[in-house]
Design a binder for these strands. Structure first.
Lengths: 158, 158
DNA sequence: CCTCAGAAGTTGAATCTTCAACGAGTTGAG
DNA sequence: CTCAACTCGTTGAAGATTCAACTTCTGAGG
């Protein structure tokens, strides 16, 4: 259904849903970052860099792989890693097999910091999301997320 | 159910839902901003500043009210308004009735810019969210958002 | 009156992100 | 072998956000 100006504006129900969703989109990440910032001096991306490395074999990943994982550009990651390196949480070295690549490595100190931080983070994820939704709601949210991701990716791909 | 370390980690189903949701949380706003940036040189907050003003009586709002509306700190808003002002989209003047307040006003030029931009934005909201979810999914997403917002606000309030 | 507490905004410095240019390393074609 | 094309990653400058003062204005209490 299109209006006279050719634009399919949102119905009032759609608008209400979008408003609520959109506000949540802004507030939830901010609330989660608050905890990470307060307890560990890290932002969302930095936390996920450490978390991603901690799951990788030898706690090592290439910069480019890490960039995809944390959904961030290489340039941003490079600056960010310099800061994390200065704090002793990671180190970088050129890949001995192929000099084009740089390996990012989680240090023991970085791992310890992550271990200290993770329980509080999981608790907030539960408090804000997992524990306020029942089984069916969570499943619905999962499905919605998948659908939205598919649509966004489809748009990216051309 | 707690594990031996006293932390209620996520079950594999919860983890899968969280991963998907969390990725969507990062990608969707970025994709929407892309369109606004490309077509109008605005980011999300800037767009909502213009949109908020356009709905207000006399296209005028106080800075502090606008800050709440767009979910942003006053300082950030002040810097941002200086930039929008330089582009001619808004202007600011002290409230004649109470000098503590500053009124932000949408100019005709700003309104015209918004009108040019809105259809493309709504189209993306449809493409990424509204049109990929059926009636029930959208209602579920709406409900989830409300629940999450409630939990986040409850945390903020103490 | 006077001043003092408090809210609203602004500002500048520090931090973080984005953007465009660059350097280094690898591969493949000629 | 060498050159060109390509990818990976870094860098510095410009732009945006955060943080901590600071100013201005009002209204309440003495």
């Amino acid at each position: 259904m299109t209006t006279s100006d050719g634009v399919r504006w949102l119905s009032s129900g759609e608008l209400a849903a979008w408003r609520s969703f959109s506000l949540m989109l802004a507030r939830l990440p901010a609330a989660l970052e608050d905890q990470l910032q307060r307890d560990g001096g890290l932002n969302f991306v930095e936390y996920h860099v450490l978390a991603g490395l901690s799951d990788a074999p030898d706690r090592t990943m290439r910069m480019s792989g890490l960039a995809v994982l944390v959904n961030s550009e290489l340039s941003r990651l490079s600056h960010l890693m310099r800061r994390l390196e200065k704090r002793g949480f990671v180190r970088r070295e050129p890949d001995p097999c192929d000099g084009r690549y740089t390996n990012a490595i989680l240090t023991d100190e970085g791992f310890a910091h992550l271990v200290k931080l993770a329980p509080g983070h999981v608790a907030k994820v539960r408090e804000f999301v997992i524990d306020v939704l029942d089984r069916h709601r969570l499943a619905a949210l999962h499905a919605c997320s998948e659908d939205i991701l598919r649509a966004v990716d489809a748009c990216d791909r051309e």
